[in-house]
Design a binder for these strands. Structure first.
Length: 578
RNA sequence: GCGGCGGUGGUCUAGUGGUAGGACCUGAGCCUUCCAAGCUCAUGGCCCGGGUUCAAAUCCCGGCCGCCGCACCA
């Protein structure tokens, strides 16, 4: 069994995660988090929220998972996710139909053509299967859309899609969110939630799935003015694997501090560099092994349609590097697209310290002239004049000004345009924020944390498996056991378990079988501490506390136990301090 | 989606054309003064559908699921 298989076996047996609906044969790419997994997931999400929402001073929202079609037309997902697939009748390989056409003809942008035309092109040019060389003529070209489609309400007149990323739920609400932020940049909006992609081939348990949880932060910044607080993370060392290194023969990972990475220009965006620094610490906190972690820059051809610079956090499991977070500088791509498609205002008004006076060329066309003259085109001519005045006021110097609309020239006497250059006072300007986006895959992080926590050792000649999870992330903080289920040890142990629960700790009580078995059980789900009530406890109100990784025990008074465990859980105390 | 391999209690597995056995786990009880000990008992299984056959968990076909490779991964 490899690392992943061992983990999946443990995950299923102990209730971290398992395939969904297996009573009905299941559906690939869907996983249910069991009791341990749901607790771990919740802890990871809480740690994320603490770091990226609370500590950063951002806000969190919760948007729908289903959104109407226009949202995804605007975002580019409808086109971007809709691949043309053709299958070779001979060898069965599937290919991107638009790609084979582009590779074998001088047709560009084949993706924008109807499927029938692409089929015709394939037949006309006698295009062959890139895998086996058989003719692809006559093979059907089909669409494969990575988004799950549904209908909103009865009938099919209102198509909707399950969101392929949580981000769009934030972008589309920008006008409201900006208002709540009192229109002050920068501000950040986060969301933790499910996203859906109808993957062709789900793989590796939680790594490639069809429903997954994202934790995304959209940080809206003024591209002219805002700077990240780089000093806070300047000394954090980043294991960077740049695009340049990836392409070089002897290229490898370089360890640079955030400061060095910015100064040397290895990471282009200060904002991205800031979040790489913050996130390195966060990954360490939740239990990612830093010896199996790197930041990899996207190669030029690999970048998403919206990103100008993009780095992935990657973790290593079974020798494979898994993308666990994407850090993208999305520019104003998303807000511009939504502004364009919706006609709403996706900017923030930034007031100047002092109002400024500027010369502005304006037109106020006489519609009583344009109307009779140009009929139905009058409004478009007026719009064109306005745009021209802004772009090139000198065009109005002559007696007549000409604008072009759809290849046709329209000449207008300047006097009818009421062209003038005025001094106007401007108190500020509309700024389209840029977006810095760290986007975390929660399931992949959980998979990584479990894989990196999985340890085996030997105790008294017996092999032991344990999860060396950070106490903060562990599903259960403390196991409470009576040494034996009799003589009042059970009563005291139950009482202690109740007290610890009242103090807010996650507690498991277990009185079954031999004590060693109970320790092993907790080891396998990563419970960091176990409290045992023995005969001595009945005498002097002390109990033993056992630490998971070392199996060492210390005797502590029952009084103050909850506080001590709480401090161990948060890291204020270590076991050695006791 | 293609190809290869696979699918037997919760987990790991043995096995055969005549409807299954082990280990671990789990539960009940006994025992036990701190690391999967022992004893007794118990629960629980051949992925689904079709075909061949007197008889299919076993052979064949299809599906589903998993692993690996390919492709895909805005």
């Amino acid at each position: 069994m490899n690392e992943g298989e061992r983990l999946t076996e443990l995950a299923k047996r102990r209730g971290f995660y398992f395939p969904s609906a297996s009573a009905y044969g299941g559906a690939s790419g869907f996983w249910t988090y069991g009791p341990q997994g749901a607790a771990l997931k919740s802890n990871v999400e809480d740690a994320w929220r603490d770091r990226y929402v609370v500590k950063e001073g951002h806000q969190e929202i919760s948007a729908p998972t289903v959104m109407p079609e226009p949202v995804f037309e605007a975002s580019g997902h409808l086109d971007g996710f809709d691949d043309m697939i053709i299958e070779c009748g001979e060898c069965g390989a599937t290919h991107r139909a638009d790609h084979v056409v582009e590779d074998n003809t001088d047709v560009e942008e084949a993706e924008s053509l109807p499927n029938e035309e692409v089929m015709d092109l394939i037949a006309e040019h006698g295009i062959e299967c890139p895998s086996c060389g058989a003719s692809l003529a006559g093979e059907p070209v089909e669409n494969f859309n990575l988004m799950f489609e549904t209908n909103i309400g009865p009938g099919s007149s209102s198509p909707g899609y399950l969101r392929p990323e949580t981000a769009q739920g934030i972008f589309v609400e920008f006008p409201q969110l900006s208002e709540y932020a009192r229109n002050q940049l920068p501000f950040g909006v986060a969301q933790i939630g499910k996203a859906y992609r109808n993957e062709i081939s789900p793989r590796k348990s939680l790594v490639r799935v069809r429903e997954f949880t994202q934790a995304e932060l959209e940080h809206f910044v003024d591209p002219e003015e805002d700077e990240p607080p780089l000093a806070e993370v300047a000394d954090v060392t980043l294991p960077l694997y740049s695009a340049e290194s990836q392409q070089a023969d002897d290229g490898g990972q370089r360890d640079l501090t955030v400061r060095e990475a910015v100064d040397e220009g290895v990471v282009a965006s200060d904002w991205v560099a800031y979040y790489l620094g913050v996130s390195k610490r966060w990954y360490e906190r939740i239990g990612v092994d830093m010896d199996r972690f790197r930041y990899r820059q996207h190669l030029a051809g690999e970048r998403a349609h919206y990103a100008s610079d993009c780095w992935d956090a990657e973790s290593e499991v079974d020798g494979d590097w898994i993308e666990i977070t994407g850090f993208a500088y999305r520019g104003d791509y998303d807000l511009s697209k939504h502004a364009e498609h919706s006609g709403e205002d996706f900017t923030v008004f930034k007031q100047y310290d002092e109002p400024i006076t500027v010369e502005r060329a304006t037109v106020d066309p006489d519609m009583s002239y344009l109307g009779p003259e140009f009929g139905g085109d009058a409004q478009r001519v007026a719009d064109a004049l306005e745009a021209l005045a802004e772009r090139d006021p000198s065009a109005f110097d002559a007696d007549e000004v000409t604008v072009e609309i759809d290849g046709e020239d329209y000449a207008v006497p300047v006097e009818q345009t009421n062209f003038s250059v005025d001094e106007v006072t401007e108190s500020g300007e509309h700024v389209r924020p840029h977006v810095v986006e760290p986007s975390f895959g929660v399931g992949r992080i959980i998979y990584t944390v479990l894989a990196h926590a999985y340890e085996t050792d030997e105790v008294d000649g017996e092999e032991r498996t344990y999860l060396s999870l950070p106490p903060e992330q562990a599903p259960t903080t403390v196991g409470v056991f009576p040494l034996m289920d009799k003589d009042g040890m059970d009563d005291l142990a139950r009482e202690i378990a109740g007290d610890l629960r009242s103090a807010g700790l996650s507690v498991t009580y277990d009185d079954s079988g031999a004590i060693g078995r109970r320790y092993r059980r907790q080891d396998e789900v990563g419970t960091p501490y176990c409290v045992t009530v023995d005969y001595e406890a009945l005498e002097d109100d002390t109990v033993t506390v056992r630490e998971r990784d070392t199996t060492e025990q210390k005797r502590l008074p029952v009084d103050g136990l909850a506080e001590t465990l709480e401090q161990l859980n948060t890291g204020e105390l270590t076991f050695d301090d006791l």
